[in-house]
Design a binder for these strands. Structure first.
Lengths: 125, 125
DNA sequence: TATACCAGTATACTTTAGTATAGTAGTTAC
DNA sequence: GTAACTACTATACTAAAGTATACTGGTATA
């Protein structure tokens, strides 16, 4: 089979490709604020100021920068409306919405892991 | 229902808890080298030098630091063997092995996302 | 005319993450 | 005795990420 993965099942057998694909995903969501932003946008379209209010302690500089990153990576779509004054709406792309699958298993693993660590400490067999 | 999540399904309904659990997961795997280390250990126990050889360009300083982090977070178990000279083995804990579920969906999403972006560029409908 | 909202940008700074390079203590092989 | 292996640690540095603070240009409201 070697390492010429073309099918998902095969990729998963191949260490280097596996790590590469995961790193791809990691790069897209790297940084302190990308997940909060995606999390917020999962609940629907938002405007810049709405996101700023939604996400505690984020500065407009970081919000602007992270939104640009997410837009470049086709996770978020930016739409400017010809209203007065202009309003700008951010929403998830298909890929962005599909990322919820990743978040779901992250939540699951996170919770299970916490339980694991807790039961180790309390000695609960 | 408010925000007093006790069941997974309920947590997923609650934005702030959702984000918190995901951040937990992110913190555990943050950094440039944790995923390569976990990826390598998914293929079985490894000694320090084996990991160092396995993971291209990692320095012993970073490997040591990241292994300590992973150990503290109960992702990796460190065992010292009374051989001469001493050998030290690193292996994944149950939690660590269960993390493969997360990696799997990351690989899946990463590949799908790449296809998405590609088909956008080439204009394939 | 002053204040406030929107969607950001600019500049300077601090903090964190990662790298480079060398060295430790113990053991074995030549 | 010197070179090499194991499992690291120490020191000093660079680079990347994030923060703080202020400001822009346009519009609307009191």
């Amino acid at each position: 089979m070697a390492c010429d993965a073309t099918v998902l099942a095969e990729v998963k057998m191949c260490s280097s490709n596996y790590v590469m694909a995961v790193n791809d995903t990691m790069n897209v969501i790297s940084g302190k604020w990308k997940l909060p932003i995606i999390g917020s946008l999962l609940y629907g379209k938002k405007r810049f100021k709405e996101l700023e209010r939604d996400i505690a302690k984020i500065t407009p500089r970081m919000l602007s920068k992270e939104l640009k990153d997410l837009e470049m990576n086709s996770i978020v779509k930016r739409t400017v409306h010809n209203t007065i004054p202009v309003t700008v709406e951010y929403e998830l792309t298909d890929s962005g919405r599909r990322f919820k699958n990743v978040l779901d298993v992250m939540v699951e693993w996170g919770l299970e892991h916490r339980q694991d660590v807790m039961s180790e400490i309390t000695g609960g067999k």
